[in-house]
């Protein structure tokens, strides 16, 4: 039983359709449960009050925003090396999800930043790199849309993802350096400081477990969305192929 069996579109669709109801339900339970637990059954933070609770949306989406790009990089490589269409289509299907996650992370960050720092936006390295990541998602999706031939589009976007990843990483370091130069080590609100990962008393921190539940929920949601969208992409690709056949037959 090799993982590559799922590179067969038919097998992929039948398998994912079987697990998808479970995924949707589990994602809903985790997210709703985590949010209710987090919003109503944990106390306010000493300095920030109730504002801190936006981490239940902010942290999971921010984590996904980055990891979805990494997943696209992996599936792009798989396409370039093994030429499995499902892999390329999964990368295509993941991009809009990643873009929306980046957008949510940016928006919740701004909403959080307003009461905490007194401003909607600062050119903090972290915020800036998310904005740059958002632009990379935009470019990647635009290139997919622009090219007619499906295999050419898959090849070109894979190369863009590959080269883009290197430059995105470079941008991350560049931006770190760039702002440090202005604000002499501006002390930003570290997520780790809030959820307790930075400190010894991680286990005691009341925000930790609901947050973990939310993160799990969002990951499950992403997987469900990814399966759903990849299935759609496979069918769209199939329709395109059938239409092309008809033209040839005619």
């Amino acid at each position: 039983m090799s993982i590559w069996e799922y590179a067969n579109p038919k097998k992929f669709i039948t398998t994912t359709e079987r697990v998808m109801p479970v995924l949707w339900a589990a994602a809903a339970v985790c997210i709703v449960g985590g949010l209710i637990w987090g919003f109503f059954f944990t106390g306010d933070e000493v300095r920030q009050g109730a504002t801190v609770k936006i981490i239940y949306l902010h942290v999971p989406t921010a984590m996904l925003a980055i990891n979805i790009w990494v997943m696209m990089l992996v599936t792009s490589l798989v396409w370039l090396v093994r030429r499995h269409h499902v892999s390329a289509l999964a990368a295509r299907a993941a991009a809009p999800i990643g873009m929306v996650m980046t957008l949510i992370a940016l928006a919740t960050g701004a909403i959080w930043g307003q009461p905490t720092w007194g401003t909607w936006w600062v050119w903090d390295p972290r915020l800036t790199s998310f904005l740059i990541l958002f632009l990379f998602y935009l470019g990647y999706m635009a290139l997919w849309e622009a090219i007619d031939d499906a295999d050419t589009a898959a090849d070109l976007t894979s190369f863009l993802c590959l080269v883009g990843s290197v430059f995105a990483l470079l941008s991350r370091y560049a931006v770190n350096f760039w702002n440090q130069g202005l604000h002499q080590g501006a002390s930003i609100m570290r997520v780790g400081a809030v959820i307790g990962t930075d400190t010894e008393e991680k286990v005691n921190n009341i925000y930790f477990y609901p947050l973990m539940l939310c993160i799990l929920g969002f990951v499950l949601l992403f997987v469900a969305l990814l399966f759903y969208r990849t299935g759609t992409e496979i069918r769209a690709r199939r329709i395109k192929a059938l239409l092309a056949r008809e033209r040839v037959m005619a």
Binding site: L135, F167, L170, S171, A174, F177
Partner: peptide, 11 residues
């Protein structure tokens, strides 16, 4: 496509 790739150089 090119402008995001230009960012590190520009910075």
């Amino acid at each position: 496509l090119v402008m995001p790739l230009y960012m590190p150089t520009l910075i």
